[in-house]
Design a protein around this nucleic acid. Structure first.
Length: 645
RNA sequence: GCCAAUAUAGCUCAGUUGGUAGAGCAGCGGUUUCGUAAACCGCAGGUCAAGGGUUCGAGUCCCUUUAUUGGCUCCA
């Protein structure tokens, strides 16, 4: 039998394993091989092979290798937990990005204080050098084994597998766990792990099922790598917008106003204002017109749109929703049906299309109390919303236009490189959620697929993530905790125009329903601001900074000159603050740096006399002494060019 | 909504087995007018998140509520 590895073939005995070969031929690197791919299938290193094959070892450098490594660590965790809590029932324990978790059903949920003891038990088990041993059983025997071990969750998992499935287990000492594998050849590879947090998690992700106790952890091949990672996480959390945004006085919250209802302070408001003006101008340059529609409407409107049926729980309702004899209003959770009324204002011709209706739109969504997160998930927010009412033949061009706009906006903000793409499709099985016929859905999804493939972005398909009226392109971004959220969405809707009786007269004189694209250009301002804070750690590019320049005087003799300079900046619509306090200049600079202000203009006696300033950047570097006019021009250029400095 | 953690001055945090609240920074008033990472002196600042309970006595123990945080679920 021949095994080929790294392009070289070796003659080996039939039934021997990749591990046997690698151990001999690549002894030096052998410890870094966690498993092998045999003809593309990830397999245990020492699994017997019975025919010629191409094998590729996987290491921690490979995604697959990381997965094997961390999955084995999750098993180490479950072994330790069973040792300390013999009554714990095992659920599942996969590897995830940057680590792993394991879900347990225990009488009392784990507490943070329990983790050190579990880690200690894991460490001891790790040192006993257990070799995970794989064996398989037919389905009925597998169920019997798990029943004997009193593992109801495992039984349920097996019962969901097909009748004829062969089911694999891994044994490590007395410990047996249902598992597809593969695993590390020896658990003593797991020299550097850490249990990071505890959380509740529903069995099978279903909120109607039991809540289990989840332990998260991470592990690396060496202590050094583990510490580097933990340090990196620590650093990332220092950029947390929720902490920084408050420290920098961008926003605050108060109990008495309520959850998910942030107060934007002057500096935060300034940034929102800069963004909004820029977005509206940008849209105008691309043929958008804007509307201003009400923040609430009678329930009747939402009944037509379908929101009353689909999302009533998510709306703030004013009045008794169940009393049909009285007026009942709801704050709007979206703008669609409001803007459609603008289209319906008079009869429309095919020549009127595309009609690009934009609105800087404040929305209200009654999110569950546990959902709120800083500025990322709030109950009242403002979105750069638009509905493009178009003819079918305009779909491709207009969709591209929306994509390009999103690209241009996010690139200017410096966020584009951090984004990923998700093509959110419907699930025909989930009949409760979606409206429209399979034909309509196929048409919309097919159209979007063609456009996305043509644009050439790398997207991931997400089933059952569509809006109830159509498929979406979601532009996703991760926050400092690694949690992904949608920043921008572009949706194709072939359904709602008909429901609202929207028609245009085509060239052939026929009345037709338009298509509609729902989209945002900068997304939700609150969320985008949150991501910007985290991206720049509060040190915004000059064009976005709420205070672009701080003018610092060395003595009060320079106050008049400072005032003059401030007025010159104001005259150019630039944003500056004056610090005339009687403090040492070093102290003032330090304070401006802590406020992350991009530039400091220092004026002492020498400068005041010549009408010059010494410019310092936020790092404190001296950029030289220049005339007032030049200093103002420098900031003006950074501002107008939207430079990411 | 569910699982868990947290809540003391504007901010960062002390506060012992229950004995009636403390520091630094910020603020205010003085002094200092100074050339690059925290000048000096003084003053003021708190219903210890809110409400209830146990106790002779609660920041501390118990319960409820609110908010914040990390997950889960949800996310038009």
């Amino acid at each position: 039998m021949k095994l080929t590895v790294f392009g070289k073939s070796y003659e080996v005995e039939k039934g021997s394993s990749a591990g046997d070969l690698l151990k001999n031929e690549f002894a030096e690197d052998f410890k870094s091989y966690y498993a092998v791919k045999i003809e593309g299938t990830l397999t245990d290193l020492f699994a017997p092979i019975d025919k010629d094959a191409e094998i590729t070892p996987v290491t921690f450098q490979d995604e697959d290798g990381k997965k094997v490594f961390r999955h084995s660590c999750s098993h180490l965790l479950s072994m330790a937990v069973l040792q300390l809590y013999p009554d714990a029932k095992l659920a599942i324990g996969p590897a995830i990005e940057n680590g792993f978790y394991y879900d347990f059903d225990v009488e009392t949920p784990f507490k943070p204080d329990d983790l050190p003891a579990i880690e200690k038990a894991m460490d001891k088990l790790m040192r006993s050098s257990l070799r995970p041993k794989r064996f398989t059983l037919p389905r009925s025997e597998a169920i019997a084994l798990m029943k004997e071990k009193n593992e109801p969750y495992k039984v349920e998992l097996i019962e969901d597998l097909p009748e004829d499935a062969t089911i694999s287990f891994y044994q490590m000492g007395d410990f047996v766990d249902l598992c597809a594998g593969p695993h590390l050849p020896n658990l003593n590879y797991l020299k550097a792990f850490k249990l990071t947090q505890i959380a509740g998690a529903y069995w099978r992700g279903d909120e109607n099922k039991k809540m289990l106790s989840r332990i998260y952890g991470t592990c690396f091949p060496s202590k050094q790598e583990l510490n580097d990672y933990l340090e990196m996480v620590e650093e990332a959390r220092k950029r947390d917008h929720n902490k920084l945004g408050r420290e920098l006085e961008l926003f605050t919250t108060v109990d008495i106003i309520g959850q998910g209802l942030p107060i934007f302070l002057p500096k935060g408001t300034r940034i929102l204002q800069i963004l909004q003006r820029w977005v509206e101008d940008t849209e105008m340059k691309r043929g958008y017109v804007h509307t201003k529609t009400p923040l609430l409407a009678k329930r009747d409107l939402y009944k037509i749109s379908g929101h009353w049926d689909h999302y009533r729980d998510g709306m703030f309702i004013i009045g008794d929703p169940d009393d049909e004899t009285k007026e009942c209003f709801a704050l709007r959770p979206m703008t669609c049906p409001f803007q459609y009324q603008a289209f319906l204002n008079r009869s429309r011709s095919y020549r009127d299309l595309p009609m690009r209706l934009g609105e800087t739109s404040t929305l209200f969504r009654n999110e569950d109390s546990g959902e709120m997160h800083g500025l990322i998930r709030v109950r009242q927010f403002t979105i750069s919303e638009a509905h493009l009412i178009i003819r079918p033949d305009q779909l491709e061009e207009e969709f591209r236009g929306c994509f390009n706009l999103a690209h241009d906006i996010l690139s200017t903000l410096g966020l584009w490189e951090d984004c990923s793409f998700q093509f959110s499709q419907w699930d025909p099985q989930n009949t409760k959620k979606y409206e429209g016929t399979p034909e309509q859905w196929d048409a919309a999804q097919q159209a979007m697929k063609i456009i996305l493939d043509d644009i050439g972005i790398d997207y991931k398909v997400a089933k059952d993530e569509a809006a109830f009226y159509g498929p979406k392109l979601d532009i996703q971004i991760k926050n400092v905790f690694g949690k992904e959220d949608t920043l921008i969405t572009v949706q194709i809707d072939l359904l709602l125009a008909k429901k609202f009786g929207m028609e245009y007269t085509d060239a052939d004189g026929q009345k037709k329903n338009p298509y509609i694209i729902h989209r945002t250009s900068i997304g939700c301002y609150e969320r985008t601001l949150a991501l910007l804070i985290e991206k720049y750690a509060g040190a915004f590019p000059t064009w976005l900074a709420p205070v672009q320049v701080k003018i610092l005087t060395i003595t009060n003799r320079s106050d008049d000159a400072a005032g003059e300079l401030q007025q010159m900046l104001w005259d150019q619509n630039l944003r500056c603050e004056l610090d005339l306090r009687n403090e040492k200049i070093g102290f003032k600079i330090r304070e401006a740096q802590m406020q992350k202000i991009p530039y400091m203009f220092v004026i002492g006696d020498r400068e005041a006399e010549n009408k010059t300033v010494t410019i310092r950047n936020r790092k404190g570097d001296n950029l030289g002494t220049v005339p007032f006019g030049d200093a103002v021009a420098m900031i003006k250029k950074l501002n107008d060019d939207k430079t990411i400095d």
